[in-house]
Design a protein around this nucleic acid. Structure first.
Length: 303
DNA sequence: AAGGAAGTCAACCGCCGTGTA
DNA sequence: CTACACGGCGGTTGACTTCCT
């Protein structure tokens, strides 16, 4: 055996410096070698694996390639609405703990989630001219985007239910999250867990111990028992119903108040520079034209 | 059609924690 | 205890693609 594991046939070990290591994109041949080797020998110490498989790559490079791309259970394709919701929720709790977040999205890698966050979510923050870690932005996620995602999941579930016509009762979307593919965090003292039909940012956050949103929490919890209580039982998502029931005191959502109070200019965001409106049907758009119009109306009403 | 801007994502880098000799 | 190798993780880069003018 070599120092840290397997040795490929008893030959003298060759240092990485002597191996003329390759870098950059992987070739089909390299992928094939790595897949074949792992299929035969399993995963192991990556440095020795790289040598034994005849790959002129570092162990790290092999590990990354396998975990992020070649592994058979890697799930490719667009991030679903359910996954987006889960990412937003988990990120609000754990921050940039991509690996930890990825553990709860089967088949998704930390790299993929990280890329999603940086390219999609941070884009929205940039467009709003606010920091992605700011309270305003986090509250927008909590009180606008996440409810919006829930609505859209609900609508999709309802559409599926009516098309199949086999089920009289509509399953709540979170109970049906990812068609069984979601693995929610274990139910701990402060965790949201299996009470999926009761999912809200309020009860799902870590507010009890360490509220990552800071000390001031918008008063929505007094107005809403849960998000589903604001959604008509006929599963017909309606932003007006949503806000007017949920935020009955002022008809202004907490996030809208934030933008109003912090001088953030919603009205200057026309359809040409607002990423939330462009291609509103795209999977990663949280707000549609109705939301935008509604927010504008609310701002005008209070001016 | 061409060129630049913006978006996407695979891969690399550097740091850190852990295990072992 | 110390040194070293290794794996894991988050941040960053850069090649490639798509969009826009």
């Amino acid at each position: 055996m070599d120092v840290k594991g397997r040795n490929c046939g008893g030959n003298v070990q060759i240092s990485e410096e002597e191996m003329d290591l390759r870098r950059g994109p992987w070739t089909v041949e390299e992928d094939f070698k790595l897949i074949n080797y792992i299929a035969t020998h399993g995963e192991g110490r990556w440095n020795s694996l790289a040598r034994c498989a005849g790959l002129k790559r570092t162990g790290k490079s092999c590990r990354l390639r396998w975990l992020n791309y070649l592994r058979p259970d890697v799930r490719r394709g667009n991030i679903t609405l359910e996954e987006q919701l889960l990412i937003l929720e988990l990120h609000s709790r754990w921050g940039n703990r991509w690996s930890k977040i990825a553990q709860h999205l089967p088949g998704r890698t930390d790299n993929e989630i990280k890329n999603y966050w940086r390219t999609r979510v941070q884009k929205h923050a940039k467009q709003l001219k606010c920091d992605v870690n700011s309270k305003q932005f986090k509250d927008t996620m909590r009180y606008l985007w996440m409810p919006r995602l829930v609505e859209r999941i609900q609508a999709a579930a309802a559409a599926t239910a009516t098309s199949t016509t086999t089920s009289a009762s509509v399953t709540t979307p979170t109970a049906n999250l990812g068609t069984g593919q979601m693995v929610l965090p274990p139910l701990g003292n402060n965790d949201f867990g299996t009470s999926s039909s009761n999912y809200t940012p309020e009860n799902s956050s870590t507010a009890a111990s360490s509220d990552s949103f800071g000390t001031q929490v918008s008063p929505v919890s007094d107005l809403t028992t849960d998000y589903y209580s604001n959604i008509p039982v006929n599963n017909n998502p309606n932003p007006d119903n949503y806000f007017q029931v949920g935020y009955s005191d002022s008809l202004i959502s907490p996030a809208a108040n934030y933008y109003n109070n912090h001088g953030m200019d919603f009205q200057s965001m026309d359809q040409h520079n607002n990423p939330w409106l462009d291609g509103a049907e795209a999977a990663d758009n949280f707000l549609n034209a109705d939301d935008y119009f509604f927010l504008q109306q609310q701002f005008n009403f209070n001016m």
